[in-house]
Design a binder for these strands. Structure first.
Lengths: 301, 301
DNA sequence: AGTTGCAACAGGGA
DNA sequence: CTCCCTGTTGCAAC
């Protein structure tokens, strides 16, 4: 459950389920995912009481009163699972917190993840979270103006900038796919060549795509705190290599952009600014991209 | 007179002509070429007596006793001219030092140059000179082993590394042309793909090319301390775009490599390691590249 | 024809 | 599907 929608959902569930519990037991099976030696980690976490749990970007912030924050990143994938009192003990995990009521939280990631403990007073010095940029679901900080400032003066391609957590926090290589498609932007489009209208559309598409996915409980192939999958699965172009574009029917391609893969519709997502449409000529894509948070039209019948 | 041969020649002439003179007068027409405010520059320089003058890379180091060094870089081109007592005053210059015997040194560069004054005790903190690398005409520091260490582990192209003053001090975009040609290396050849034999040849070619040019008093289109031109003008491929390669007759090309221009023989200078020559096949270039410090064969008669 | 500093980019590794 | 670090490369500036 790596990106912002899943993390938002997870943090909300943790906030409801765990708040007020006291950490009675700390079990770490993989010390390298910690930011401090095991002894220090345990000393920081054990005995603390869980306060608010929030999300920012791909990170979960769990308050451990008094004076500590537990910071969790699931990296390229993993689960944070709640185990109620008396439930069967968790199987595979890297870190487990047992609570005073017999319940537990187990954390398992299958590649790289981070379970960090920092003193709240020193949280500013935790680089990976301190450098996080705008939260796209927070309307007070994610404004069109702030978004424009972010892109201002940049010379590179649009995709890496949107995925840079220091700019906008929470977009990974999954949700970026349909965001770029809905914004009708090729991943390597130069930022300096994005028109005002395109930038406005992109701004809205980011917010609405992530919001929609969060409302659906995140990706269908990720689990929530209770092991249940999300309901978001209908990608427009993401992971649909070889299938038809829902807008124009062209065959979706999987390309390499820098070191990451991108799925694009080669006809809808263009590298240059779309030329002015002359009166009478057909629009390149007929549907309103803003409407496409809904599942794509089925072409199977 | 920008690169090492010209600077060596200039420093030697300055050492002979200026040593022992006392700076009586400082005139600065372009303050931005200084490293300190004009008042401070004057305070450091005026009244001092010239000691040894030496060269390192593209910089002239002039001792100003007691306790100061005058550091001069002519940037992309310029002159440092001696004016004997009673001679006509210099025309255009950015910086002029007048001496107690009525002679003067005028410095004029036509783009960017530096005339810096630093306390000798603080010379290590003068970044542009402190970071200079190996002197290719100093056999005790420019050894094949040191050269190999420089190239070790590098992944990029050979040309920018040779022109990096922190590695080898003194090669610019003029002398690099024939150095690469004599070493039979394409400017974008990957360092990791240079063979041992090629590296040995390159090591020698650098030293011998610069030494030969210095012995000729530098470039024919540059002036020495007395306004006289050097005698080096017979480039093998440098600035000979469209003319035949002196080795194989192929047409010399001017290409862009990164942000600089390079003149190459497309047939002699290859990007891949030269394949082993099978017995009986003709060598790609018949002349011994080590012999080519002499002028190229004339093709005009 | 020079150098610096920064942004962008690519590769290796945890 | 992650991130950081490093070195490299390109560009704009003086």
């Amino acid at each position: 459950m790596p990106e912002l929608p899943e993390i938002c959902n997870l943090a909300r569930q943790m906030d409801s389920a765990l708040k007020g519990k006291r950490v009675a037991d700390v079990s770490v099976r993989q010390e390298k995912c910690l930011n401090v030696p095991l002894r220090k980690f345990t000393a920081l976490v054990a005995g603390k009481t869980i306060g608010s749990v929030t999300a920012r970007g791909k990170w979960v912030f769990m308050e451990l009163r008094p004076g500590v924050h537990f910071l969790l990143s699931l990296g390229m994938g993993g689960d944070a699972l709640y185990h109620k009192p008396g439930a069967a003990p968790p199987g595979k995990y890297q870190v487990k917190l047992g609570f005073d009521d017999g319940s537990a939280l187990s954390i398992a990631f299958w590649w790289f993840g981070y379970a960090h403990a920092v003193k709240t007073a020193e949280i500013k010095s935790h680089k990976m979270t301190a450098s996080l940029g705008l939260s796209p679901l927070d309307n007070s900080e994610y404004t069109y103006q702030a978004f424009s400032v972010l892109l201002g003066g940049k010379k590179g391609a649009i995709k890496p900038v949107l995925m840079n957590q220091a700019h906008i926090a929470g977009i990974g290589n999954v949700y970026i796919q349909d965001i770029l498609f809905r914004a009708k932007l090729h991943p390597t489009r130069k930022i300096s060549e994005i028109s005002e209208a395109e930038r406005k559309l992109l701004f809205r598409v980011i917010k609405e795509s992530l919001k929609r996915a969060a409302e659906l409980g995140g990706l269908a192939y990720e689990k929530d705190l209770y092991g249940r999958p999300g309901r978001f699965k209908d990608f427009l172009v993401g992971y649909r290599e070889g299938q038809p574009c829902p807008e124009c029917g062209a065959t979706i391609e999987k390309i390499k952009t820098g070191s990451t893969a991108t799925f694009i519709c080669p006809s809808c997502q263009i590298q240059a600014v779309r030329p002015e449409r002359r009166p009478g000529s057909a629009p390149p894509c007929s549907r309103d991209p803003r409407a496409s948070c809904a599942p794509p039209p089925r072409r199977t019948a």
